[in-house]
Write a protein that binds this DNA or RNA. Structure first.
Lengths: 114, 114
DNA sequence: TTATCATATAATAATATACTTATATATTCA
DNA sequence: TGAATATATAAGTATATTATTATATGATAA
């Protein structure tokens, strides 16, 4: 059942991207639901450029894709990427982070546009 | 079937360690067979201290353990570590590296002591 | 059209990482 | 015991990473 489709070089690229608490949490959250940049800024309590730069790395690797909805840019997981099943396997082994989305909702900071 | 026993912090520690081509290959090779330091030096064509430092990081995280056999120190995967199944899942998705051991054997550099 | 809001990029600084060479330690064997 | 071999550690250096502040860009709404 192992696909073993990734070279060891490709795997290290993906692992490096996931080996950061902010990015790993971002990707895990995106598995729950699409989110926009300002939501991540709120969740992680870091500067907006910091989040933007993390998202850029994930986007450059085609792990996530962006989708403008009015004022906001929503990010989602690019499930069509050939590395997706590898990422999914990693994510399946870490705890859900959805309490962060629930907390966001409770504090009225969830963006629900369009 | 997901154990989800790791916190996101623990997962990033492990992922950081695996997110390096040399270390990822070392761990994958150790899944095939125990190896000693000088074999890794031969395989990766880097300095002995470089390998020693990679192994130290893996050892400090209890991912591998060491076992002196005469002159040599053999490393093996610590399957008793609670992070082992997480690591196993990652490793299952990258290609076998055992051709490196076969090549080592062919060039007469394989250590088979004790 | 101008102000505001959301996001991206540039520049910079602090810290982490992964090598190298030099050297110390531990084991084996003549 | 002393030389040779295997490994670890120390010190130094180059590069990568991740944050910050300042600023640019792009969309919306008064």
């Amino acid at each position: 059942m192992n696909q073993q489709q990734l070279s060891i070089e490709q795997a290290t690229v993906i692992l490096k991207l996931l080996a950061d608490k902010t990015r790993l949490t971002i990707v895990k959250l995106l598995q729950e639901q699409d989110c926009c940049v300002c939501e991540f800024v709120e969740i992680f309590q870091v500067s907006q450029p910091s989040i933007s730069q993390h998202l850029r790395k994930l986007r450059d690797a085609d792990i996530v894709k962006e989708d403008r909805r009015g004022q906001w840019i929503f990010y989602s997981i690019n499930t069509e990427n050939s590395t997706f099943s590898f990422i999914e396997q990693v994510l399946s082994q870490i705890p859900s982070q959805k309490e962060k989305l629930i907390e966001l909702e409770r504090s009225g900071k969830r963006i629900t546009c369009c």
